[in-house]
């Protein structure tokens, strides 16, 4: 089935819209299933931590939202490169559609981090490398969205915002490696690509399930937002007419044009 789908065609808005319509129900469903499984394992299977008691359960949303905040920013930078290099407008649509969700995830990682820090470190906030660079990530998201919206000429605004996204991407490795590069109150990496995770299997499973849930949720939301964005930008195009009027008039733009042709002939005779 997958081979028959012409993936390269999905940079065109109508094909993208069609594909997003078919993907989002599965992404929502997957996010709900993984989320329920993750919460079950996180609250009813994983044991309390021997040092932190039950407060460590915040980790099951803190780590996934922090990962998503960084990952979505990398995606935005990637789409920005595609947009700036090949001027593919759907790349900009995807980038701006991802930004609010990336900002939300980053905010949630800071929020859950503060509420985890309070009982474990005795403070909601410290100006150390990990926390400060994550706060900068949140400001980069907000700056990207503000710049994108601020310029009247959408093309110019999109290009300026894409450049900002690219410049800001250096911040992501800084966040990721900050706990190794600087002395930090924040604990080091518990999960790396090379070593086994330094936590119980059930804790690790809950974290991975919640990460999957956040990933699928973000994908569904971003595709939906990109659809709305594409509709607004392409409002004058035939595919939007097909999408919006097609169903109610029992036909597409071609039949509508035919009908108006019939009408013209009728009027003339």
């Amino acid at each position: 089935m997958f081979r028959k789908i012409p993936w390269f065609k999905f940079s065109s808005p109508p094909n993208f819209y069609w594909l997003a319509d078919r993907l989002t129900p599965w992404l929502w469903g997957g996010a709900a299933i993984l989320g329920i499984m993750g919460l079950y394992v996180g609250f009813f299977v994983a044991p309390p931590d021997y040092q932190q008691g039950d407060s460590y359960r915040i980790m099951f949303i803190h780590v996934p939202t922090a990962w998503m905040g960084m990952f979505i920013y990398l995606l935005i930078a990637l789409y920005s490169v595609i947009f700036l290099t090949w001027r593919i407008k759907m790349a900009d649509v995807m980038a701006i559609a991802l930004a609010p969700t990336g900002a939300l995830m980053t905010f949630l990682s800071l929020w859950t981090g503060a509420l985890w820090g309070a009982p474990t470190w005795g403070t909601y906030w410290v100006w150390d490398a990990r926390l400060t660079s994550t706060l900068i990530l949140l400001f980069l998201y907000l700056g990207y969205m503000a710049l994108h919206a601020a310029v009247d000429d959408r093309e110019k605004g999109a290009r300026a915002a894409s450049l900002l996204a690219l410049v800001g991407v250096v911040n992501v490795p800084i966040i990721y490696f900050s706990v190794e590069w600087w002395h930090s109150l924040h604990q080091g990496m518990s999960v790396t690509l090379t070593d086994a995770p330094s936590m119980a299997a059930s804790m690790f499973a809950a974290m991975l399930l919640m990460t999957g849930a956040c990933w699928l949720y973000s994908a569904a939301i971003a595709l939906r937002r990109a659809q709305v964005e594409a509709l607004e930008r392409e409002a004058g195009n035939p595919w939007v007419q097909d999408e919006l009027l097609g169903a109610e008039e029992g036909g597409d733009a071609a039949t509508a044009a035919e009908a108006s042709g019939d009408l013209q002939r009728e009027v003339r005779s």
Binding site: P48, G53, D54, S55, R57, I58, I61, H62, T65, L104, F107, L108, W111, T112, L115, W116, A118, P119, Y217
Partner: peptide, 20 residues
Amino acid sequence: AMGGYAPWVWGSYGVFAVLL
């Protein structure tokens, strides 16, 4: 009661759920 950590744990999960 979350082992005495109720405000922190539910404050995290609550805001997470509400915002999403």
